[in-house]
Amino acid sequence: MELFLQFFFSGLTVGAIYALIALGFNIIYNTTSILNLAQGEFVVLGGLLMWYFLEKIHLPYGVSIILTLGISGLVGLAMERLSIRPLLKTADPLLLILITIAFSILLRGILMFLFGKEPYGYPPISEGAPLIIGGAIIQRQVLWIFLFVLFTMLFLYIFFNRTIFGIAMKACAIDSLSATLLGINTSQMVMVSFILSGIFASLAGVLVTPITFVEYDKGPLLTIKGFTAAILGGLGSNWGVMAGGFLLGILESLIAGYIHSGLKDALALLLLLSMLLFKPAGLFQSSEQARLRKL
């Protein structure tokens, strides 16, 4: 039981990270029907920037987090302005996929140029003895991760239900043509979605680096994991994809713990392929619902 709890909690931790990446996928997908394959690179960006502010120029923790998230948002903005916007008009899905891949390689290259190939890490948000719950050891950082994810969820709820801008974004996701006709500036929505998704993915990097380290080439695998989570939960719904993230994290952790740690990544990939084959709408929504969301 202790062992199970241990695996379960570490699964929740990884799952929280996947949930944040999947969320980023979903926000951009909802406004543009694009899957941003550079999502994983933003996680790496978050971790590395955070290291720079915290360890290199010794800024306080809170300031470092704010600066990191701010810059990541700007990189998201730059991505949208420089690569997505010029191609969005052509509307050729093949080109749009390729450009997100191109940008991911560019970002990875820049990160390698700036930080080299070494792994980086920094201390957790608060030091102190780990907690013990039901015999399972839980690092304090894990609690911080949950706190931040909770905070993100609250932010999402308020943003999409209580602010004019968020509601407009939701309208865009349902029917962008009608939204445009109603006077909603859809291109602004696209911009905001890239900023938000950059920030969420980067937050994932900021939070997880003290536990797992980060290096320049971790992006692609994280992209696939985040995407798997999004598909598991069903693209379209913010809550669905986050649930998918936690589910994937827990499954991986149990497989790695009870069977074989080398299987954990293969599991995610097999899960991805079989979901895509048999239930592309995700576990929590019907295919009818997904179709109405233009899946």
Partner: peptide, 27 residues
């Protein structure tokens, strides 16, 4: 999968296939 998937979905599905082979070769 390509029969049912288009665009981004196909891109990620094929990416997943390549990654699986890569992982298997490693293991």
């Amino acid at each position: 999968p390509a029969l049912r998937l288009k665009g981004h979905y196909l891109a990620v599905a094929t990416l997943g296939f390549g990654e699986i082979v890569y992982l298997l070769l490693n293991e």
